[in-house]
Write a protein that binds this DNA or RNA. Sequence first.
RNA 1: GGCGUCGUGGCCGAGUGGCUAGGCUGGGCUCUGCAAAAGCUCCUACAGCGGUUCGAAUCCGCUCGACGCCUCCA
Length: 491
Amino acid sequence: MALYEEQTIKIYNSLSNKKETFKPILKGAIGMYVCGPTVYSNVHLGNVRTFMSFDLIFRYFKHLGYKVRYVRNITDAGHLENDADEGEDRIAKKARLESLEPMEVVQEYTVDFHRVLEQFNLLPPSIEPTATGHIIEQIEIIKKILDQGLAYEVNGSVYFDVIAYNKTQHYGILSRRNIEDAIHNTRALDGQSEKRNPQDFALWKKAQPVHIMRWPSPWSEGFPGWHLECTAMSTKYLGEQFDIHGGGMDLKFPHHECEIAQAQAANHKNPVNYWMHGNMLLLNGKKMAKSTGNSILPEEIITGNNTILSKAFPATVARFFMLQAHYRSILDFSNDALLAAEKGYLRLMNSLPVLEEIKASSTSSFDIKPWIQSCYDAMNDDFNSPVLIAQLFEGVKYINQLKEGNAHLTKTDLSEFKRIMHAFIFDVLGLEHVNTQQDGGKLVKVVEMLIEMRNQAREDKNWALSDQIRDELKKVGIQLKDGKEGTTFSL
RNA sequence: GGCGUCGUGGCCGAGUGGCUAGGCUGGGCUCUGCAAAAGCUCCUACAGCGGUUCGAAUCCGCUCGACGCCUCCA
């Protein structure tokens, strides 16, 4: 029996604003789509948080034995610079400013994006499609929507007719908006707009003569609207209806709302069963955003080259910090919080080598099963990683009791305990050891030798020497731990 | 102005109508040659004001405050 048959997951669905029992369309298989980045600049830590949230979810599904097709796109065209679908394409603008081919911009930041996510130990998605690679699919969807009379062409551009759509469907179903209200509240004075209504959005934009990024279409040489690519690519790879669609909270409206409208108009089906939205990462109490400059780059955390933090932090510590908060909660980024997270992270990780040294006993002094299930329960409850981490610290407590001889486990229970600790820490949370041995274990041998020498000094009551060894090691970051069974150390 | 989220102990952060997550910090004790590590233990919070209830941090209303969306944004 697969693990997923034993566990029941509840997911908070943005469509209903409730936790719902998760049931995939196909037994044992999950289709998940997450909106990826627009590659016109470096990803900042807030971007990383969202992708990390879905990485956690992806990892947990995989751990449970689900076959997951995880699609995360790269937006490399069509994302306009500002409102009203009148602005310049973001990629094109950046290319113009830096005198580059648009695809040079795309390449540079796509590579950067991948590198950063790898540093934070995010698993690559199953498919990572690009907008420019799916122009034909997008054109086909526009044709379908036009056929339904839910879009109109003006001067070579095509716009989605929100008001027409709203006659039979609810535009605003996801963000709980009412189109009439929206119209009344619009203070738009867009004299030049080609759109019939300010709420309408572009499906296809005719390219201006200076515009480099352009593709032929039945309406004009131009480029697709931003919202369309996700509909095209999710439909293509996951079908007209699929299980999960995720993204940052700030994409809920209008982006995801538009996706629903487009898919409904083209396919007459509600495209997504579970909408999931990750919350924002705050810096100085404000949303981290590129446009306002209130952001920190992942690189700046790892190198320590920034004005916010007192020291450099490994990526995995930042990962641990972010996973200590629930994905739907706002999280404040600060030096103090990161410092505290690092200590906790170290305590958790340092317990693992101790666990390896525990000897099995003929009986178990406690039942390990309820604790194991509590780890699953945490993740089953809308992927509650902070509660999972709390449970793992319970595990640390057990490890210490086992070490002290105040508790014991049979060989079977002990190996199960180890398996679960490792599974959740590495496979599900995706944490990593900071100091990966690159020296073939030479360092360990040297430290063990120093411990030997120190033990001799202690026997001789040569406290000056023994303390010197201990203190000098401490200076280079190696901590000795004197226990009943002898001295151990952590790097 | 409209829609929505949130306001938890020194800090970070979970949370169910009643049995006080967890991490960090600080105090005490055990262990130790002294420490560290580890263990045990203490510091019992829920913005304010009303209401519902036998009972609310958890439900409802109001006030204050923060934030997000309404325009590109993970």
